[in-house]
Amino acid sequence: MTQAPDSDLPQGAVLRSVERWRGGAGRQLDDAIAEEVPVAFVYNDAPFAVMMATPADLEDFARGFALSEGIVEHPDDVAIERIEHLLEGIEIRLRIPDARAEALAARRRSMSGRSGCGVCGSELLEAALRVPPPVAADVRIAVHALQRALRQLRDSQSINALTGATHAAGWAAADGSLLLVREDIGRHNALDKLIGALHGTGQALDAGFLVVTSRASYEMAMKAASAGIALMAAISAPTALAISLAQRANLTLIGFARDDGHAVYTHAQRLLPESAPSPSAAPRPGRSSTP
């Protein structure tokens, strides 16, 4: 059986021939495969990093990466000049303020090599382990809203539904309705794309929460807190370093988020029990600690 042509697939998926075996019998067919290409970020005509990524939502990716990696502090500080599809991959050329470009040049000189993640290649510990300012937003959500967002996230992964190879990051309103989803082969990339989309669409970061289809690593927690997101729920486990950062950054970190349960590691006051109402936001009583 042959599938639809590439044009009928979502961006980021392509068809490739495969010999598939089931029950001792084999057959040749076309299979949907997730794309993976080098994406180079060039700031003010100077190359900075090359990421292996799914070539979809590239403007969101470029904007979100610049924000989550601390290259710029505000969305208005980054302008996408052009996106070039080359034989070797994709090059995204961006323009940032001169002062930020000078800081980036100094950072580039301290890197031993280009990398697909934000902390690799950093020469100094303080550069690798950034701790963002404490999150000011204090959204409150009910458990049923978290479960609703997780269900909708599973149903909204068009690339993964065909390929089984991508992560997703989703943004949900306080009632659990999913507003935005971005996918990528890399969990960090999916989150960067979502952060870029949140800023591009003007979503209020104090009125929703984040759900991701991956483990909650340090870098995922750092990117979420840097964006001002108050609650992140991951379907898999957190790392010890992610928990430490979330505690310091006033980020509610939830792991093993499934239909039948979850584990809250930091700032549990934001997740309301089933019997409690689910306001869109609660008063800000200040930073509190998880028991």
Results as ranks from 00 to 15, higher is better:
residue 3 Q to F: 08
residue 8 D to V: 04
residue 9 L to N: 11
residue 12 G to I: 10
residue 20 R to E: 14
residue 21 W to I: 15
residue 22 R to I: 12
residue 23 G to S: 11
residue 26 G to D: 03
residue 28 Q to T: 15
residue 28 Q to E: 15
residue 29 L to T: 10
residue 30 D to I: 08
residue 31 D to N: 12
residue 33 I to A: 15
residue 35 E to R: 05
residue 40 A to F: 00
residue 44 N to K: 11
residue 49 A to T: 03
residue 51 M to G: 04
residue 59 E to S: 07
residue 64 G to H: 07
residue 68 S to T: 14
residue 68 S to E: 05
residue 68 S to N: 06
residue 69 E to R: 12
residue 76 D to F: 09
residue 77 D to N: 05
residue 82 R to Y: 01
residue 82 R to S: 10
residue 83 I to Q: 09
residue 88 E to R: 15
residue 89 G to K: 03
residue 89 G to M: 04
residue 90 I to W: 00
residue 95 R to I: 05
residue 98 D to N: 10
residue 102 E to I: 14
residue 105 A to H: 12
residue 106 A to G: 14
residue 107 R to V: 02
residue 109 R to Q: 11
residue 109 R to Y: 00
residue 110 S to K: 13
residue 110 S to Q: 14
residue 110 S to W: 01
residue 111 M to F: 00
residue 113 G to V: 01
residue 115 S to M: 01
residue 117 C to P: 02
residue 125 L to P: 10
residue 131 V to G: 02
residue 132 P to Y: 01
residue 133 P to Q: 13
residue 134 P to I: 05
residue 134 P to M: 08
residue 141 I to R: 05
residue 142 A to S: 15
residue 144 H to V: 14
residue 154 R to L: 09
residue 154 R to T: 05
residue 156 S to R: 11
residue 157 Q to C: 13
residue 160 N to V: 07
residue 160 N to G: 13
residue 162 L to I: 09
residue 163 T to Q: 06
residue 165 A to I: 11
residue 166 T to F: 02
residue 170 G to P: 13
residue 177 S to I: 13
residue 185 I to C: 03
residue 185 I to A: 00
residue 186 G to F: 03
residue 186 G to L: 09
residue 190 A to E: 09
residue 193 K to E: 00
residue 194 L to H: 02
residue 194 L to C: 06
residue 196 G to S: 01
residue 207 A to V: 00
residue 211 V to I: 13
residue 211 V to L: 04
residue 214 S to E: 08
residue 219 E to W: 06
residue 227 A to F: 06
residue 230 A to D: 07
residue 232 M to F: 02
residue 236 S to M: 12
residue 238 P to G: 06
residue 247 Q to W: 00
residue 248 R to Q: 15
residue 250 N to L: 05
residue 254 I to A: 04
residue 257 A to C: 06
residue 261 G to E: 07
residue 261 G to P: 11
residue 262 H to C: 12
residue 267 H to I: 14
residue 268 A to S: 14
residue 274 E to V: 07
residue 276 A to K: 08
residue 280 S to T: 12
